[in-house]
């Protein structure tokens, strides 16, 4: 099995955590129904940077994709800003996040079975982490099509003793 594929398949093919449908707010009229979004002809639930999509992991940590540059996501170099909060809403700060590979961003194209080079990105060292904000990139998303950005938290459950991995997935479409 190709090494690059096997490394990602093993970790990304299972356990993807997706956010709940926000639903309609009470008292607010629903928007006009729109057709399903597509990417390369595939119907897929896409995320949009201007909506600051968020996911809540089983451990209670919420991952918000607060910003990206460029916006919308485009082919070539992209930078992503993620904000982490714990189940009380406080900033989630992990002391080793910048240097021990605990937090990773792993882009992946499910249609082709490949990711990026390198496969995984750690937060930028100059990011301000005191408020739970982590910046990743530049990441070269070099092909058009559907990209799944897997934000992976390794070994954080139960105080970092279980070796478990949690995974928040944000899905984007890069137009050709």
């Amino acid at each position: 099995m190709p090494l690059a594929s096997s490394l990602l398949c093993a970790t990304l093919a299972v356990g993807c955590t997706t956010g709940a449908d926000p639903g309609a707010e009470p008292g607010v009229s629903e928007p006009e129904p729109q057709g399903p979004e597509t990417c390369q002809g595939e119907e897929v639930d896409l995320d949009h940077l201007d909506e600051s999509p968020r996911r809540t992991l089983p451990s209670g940590i919420t991952v918000a994709l607060a910003a990206g540059d460029p916006d919308p996501v485009d082919r070539g170099d992209n930078t992503f800003t993620l904000e982490l909060t714990d189940d009380t809403g406080a900033a989630y700060v992990h002391p080793g996040a910048l240097d021990d590979g605990t937090f990773l961003l792993s882009p992946y194209m499910p249609a082709h079975g490949h990711g990026t080079v390198p496969l995984d990105f750690v937060p930028n060292a100059d990011a301000e982490v005191d408020d739970g904000t982590y910046i990743f990139g530049p990441i070269d998303l070099f092909m058009p099509g559907r990209w799944d950005l897997h934000f992976r938290l390794l070994d954080v459950a139960d105080g970092g003793t279980t070796g478990a991995e949690e995974d928040a997935v944000f899905t984007f479409c890069i137009e050709g």
Binding site: T38, C39, Q40, G41, E42, R75, A111, H112, G113, M143, P144, G145, R146, E175, G176
Partner: peptide, 20 residues
Amino acid sequence: TVYSQPPPVGLTCSQCHMRG
């Protein structure tokens, strides 16, 4: 290759070599 499959899987020559 997998890239010759129809959409949404495949990518044509120009989708990679003619950036939009």
